[in-house]
Design a protein around this nucleic acid. Structure first.
Lengths: 232, 232
DNA sequence: GTGCCTTTGTGAAGCAATGCACAAAGTCGA
DNA sequence: TCGACTTTGTGCATTGCTTCACAAAGGCAC
């Protein structure tokens, strides 16, 4: 059960910081398009929707890339954050499950522009196999291991229904993949060393509903009993 | 600048806890389907992928619904969590932007089963308006305010491209909506009292790429200079 | 009943993230 | 060259979350 051995030159970046770097990157790309040469932590913080002290502390984890009295060079900071996030290299991604969501992901422009290349679309449904989506032909899920090994896929997106998700997960791990983005509404069991990130569309709505209810009621309903007719 | 006045009976539930309740709910629903009558915090924690002490503390924020020596009654706990999250009532949701993602959301079964009723699909593209998706006819975005007011929509999902997102956001807020789920890759500016939750598909991939790079390199590349040919 | 066993609910310690506030470092005009 | 001004980078206090560890509570067998 080795947890994490702090290294001499420990560039361990806090998870909370890593999660915000893509946000900064997006804001910076917008500024670069508009031709802005430099930006202060205050302005960038506003654009990214965070506190400026937090932003400076986040950036300080990458190194000392600002100039006091001036701010940060937009292009240079884009490069440094991209490098830290690993976006200066090309990542081959396979999407398993080509339903509505899989199609949406395949067509989503935000991937290609950040170094994520879709190297395969796979589905178990023979009616879908052979379809051409976003320039790729959908392959049968049986080809999963072949596609991963032959095309150097290192990140797999699971966009299947809940039922087959764990099995797909097991197979891609067996094929050597250690980074998985899971859209299926299940908790995937994975061995140590495999990273799973989870996006659950309905969870976000449920959190909103919680807050919305709070606003409406000034707190949850106080009756803590079962409603009439429900038997324990 | 009133921040938050602690109340006598302060049922303020930590955000981190609220974010996990839907997870517990999903695990519990699975158990209910299998006919499991009660569950211990340990078993439920495993099913939800969290630490059991954390699970007990989370549940203790809702009240004392367990039985020592036995565990939690599955049905009863489902009811209590659902009530706390506001899922015992019906929420009318409108989806703005019926591209690939909007379609995926409209067809996603996880909403209806949790009290979220899709009350409107809207798009600005005349080619899409009139299409029938998931039993609804897509309406023109001009109808946004009418749809919200007449159908009692309290949660809006923004699934448009980045460009029109802020304008859509402003309009739905003006129409009285205070809960927004945003899929567009922009930071929405909203007044106090409006909740925005954000899902950015490419951010998750970028976080995965960061960790994947770490695994491959044993840390980020140490060269902190610009690559050859890049001029400051 | 009584006593053993299981499991909850929670105090307290530990850890991570946030935000303030300011010294240090750099720019720029005179 | 100098001094005023701007903005970074960070020490520190604070907050919030997680985890441990255990007393209290309840079930169950006999």
């Amino acid at each position: 059960m080795i947890r994490r051995i702090p290294q001499a030159r420990d560039r361990g970046i806090p998870d909370a910081t890593v999660a915000r770097l893509p946000l900064y990157l997006r804001a910076l790309n917008g500024m670069a398009e508009r031709g802005t040469p430099t930006v202060s932590s205050e302005d960038l913080a506003v654009a990214a929707g965070v506190n400026s002290a937090k932003l400076r502390k986040d950036l300080s984890h990458l190194g000392s890339y600002g100039t006091r009295g001036v701010g940060y060079d937009v292009q240079y900071l884009i490069y440094q954050i991209s490098r830290e996030l690993g976006l200066t290299q090309d990542w081959a991604v396979a999407i398993v499950g080509v339903g509505n969501l899989g199609r949406a992901l395949a067509n989503y422009g935000g991937f290609a522009s950040r170094g994520f290349r879709i190297a395969g679309l796979l589905d178990a449904d023979p009616h879908v196999v052979g379809d051409r989506i976003a320039g790729l032909v959908v392959e049968h899920a049986d080809e999963l291991e072949t596609v991963i090994r032959q095309r150097g896929v290192s990140i797999v997106v699971i966009a299947t229904p809940a039922a087959p998700a764990q099995q797909v997960c097991d197979r891609v791990i067996a094929a050597g993949v250690t980074s998985i983005l899971n859209f299926a509404p299940v908790v995937l069991a994975v061995p140590d060393g495999v990273d799973v990130r989870k996006v659950d569309l309905s969870i976000e709505l449920q959190i909103l509903a919680f807050h919305e209810q709070r606003k409406a009621n000034g707190g949850p309903i106080m009756a803590e009993e079962w409603p009439d007719g429900v038997v324990m």
